[in-house]
Nucleic acid binder design. Sequence first.
DNA 1: TCAAAAGTGTTTCTCGTACACCCATGT
DNA 2: ACATGGGTGTACGAGAAACACTTTTGA
Lengths: 245, 245
Amino acid sequence: MSDDFIQAYRTRAHRYPKPSVTVDLVVFTMLEGDLQVLLIERAEPPFQGQWALPGGFVRVGDSFDDPGESLEQAARRELAEETGLALEDAWLEQVGAFGDPGRDPRMRIISIAYTALLRPSLAPRIGAGSDASDARWWPMTALPALAFDHADILHAAHLHLRARLYSSAIAFELVPESFTVAELRRVYQAILAEELDAGNFRRHFRRLQADGVLVEAPGRRLTPTKPAKLFRFSGTSGGGTSKTG
Amino acid sequence: MSDDFIQAYRTRAHRYPKPSVTVDLVVFTMLEGDLQVLLIERAEPPFQGQWALPGGFVRVGDSFDDPGESLEQAARRELAEETGLALEDAWLEQVGAFGDPGRDPRMRIISIAYTALLRPSLAPRIGAGSDASDARWWPMTALPALAFDHADILHAAHLHLRARLYSSAIAFELVPESFTVAELRRVYQAILAEELDAGNFRRHFRRLQADGVLVEAPGRRLTPTKPAKLFRFSGTSGGGTSKTG
DNA sequence: TCAAAAGTGTTTCTCGTACACCCATGT
DNA sequence: ACATGGGTGTACGAGAAACACTTTTGA
């Protein structure tokens, strides 16, 4: 195809106004037995002082040499920037696009939402720790009012997580390297937001063990009462990603 | 918030180049016993002469008076334009966002993919009928090479459909007003791309009937052999939509 | 010794799967 | 009469759910 054609096309396309495109992140972790989300306190209007999902603009690139980044790359970059951690292998999946006019009062912004899971061992290192930080974890059971349409996005992300809990290796992302049956069960309970029968969950656990997904790990976890056996995830996958780019 | 602030923000945001945003449609129907997709033959480069998903730019609106359209509105508008039919109540769900740099060789385009279902009674009215048309139905079992990353999008849409088959009223969208057990089964089979045991499917059907989802309809379907009972979907829902806007 | 959590077992019900079989009809 | 597809019944197994129970520890 000719450069002329490309130029003509671009001119035509530019007649239509373009939206800004951002990625928003719903970062979950397990803290204090609760499923928690990372939120940022907004320092500027609109919604000044309210809490919002972390996120930022997708880098598009304006030259032939700079093609810009993919949506998932943008999400991973934002995740690294917001948490201050190197998280190349974090679990990340796209939730969907949110683009209602008026969702941002300033201008038309279409946001691609991603859900990420942060291992609980890393979670305390962001927010809550440094007092100067405007980022902190919020338990799903006690969320503040959210800016923009972020409550909708968070809700969709939670549904996404729930839907994939049993068909994906999600739960193992929210548990220490070695974990007990009860610890994994508490992750399931936090994601599903309902109690699970300990005995029945044990059988589910057994099946995972029989399938080779889980194997025993050395040592015991000292609990308030009876010490519990330890297991670890034996999956070769380092954390899957989703359909889009 | 002040107009000054908005203006300052917009100026800042405009420093970054913006992508174009489109919606792409994966329109399925049931024709000749096969699941089929609506494709458009490209008249211009790039990918001239190849087949692609229908779609178009999201109307963003550039003034305060014109807020533009939502993503779903854009998808419905394109659906109506491409099919030439009034389809306000068609089943439509978002699949996800596709935004890899280079997916369109001309410029950075982020596309929000939607899946739609078109009743088989309406399907023959577009494509194939008028010889001047560049749109036609393609069976999923014999697809042509697709332009851009549309093969990926189509694949994701098919997965989406499969995943929601049993948890949504999808199948009833692809069947006549009254239908037989075998007709519904063939829809399931087309979507799942696998054979289903007729007897077992009948039991699934029975459950739907017991739950009040399906009710008997008057008359009989004359088949090559034994006439079959007719049923109809008794759902009050006119066709659900999904998470985003 | 008592509470609490780890860990085991049992029973019931539902559902998916496989498969054998009867029934009605056009050719 | 017979092939074809509509329609029915049975038998097995996996797994969800409810729940009673034993074991091991710290306090």
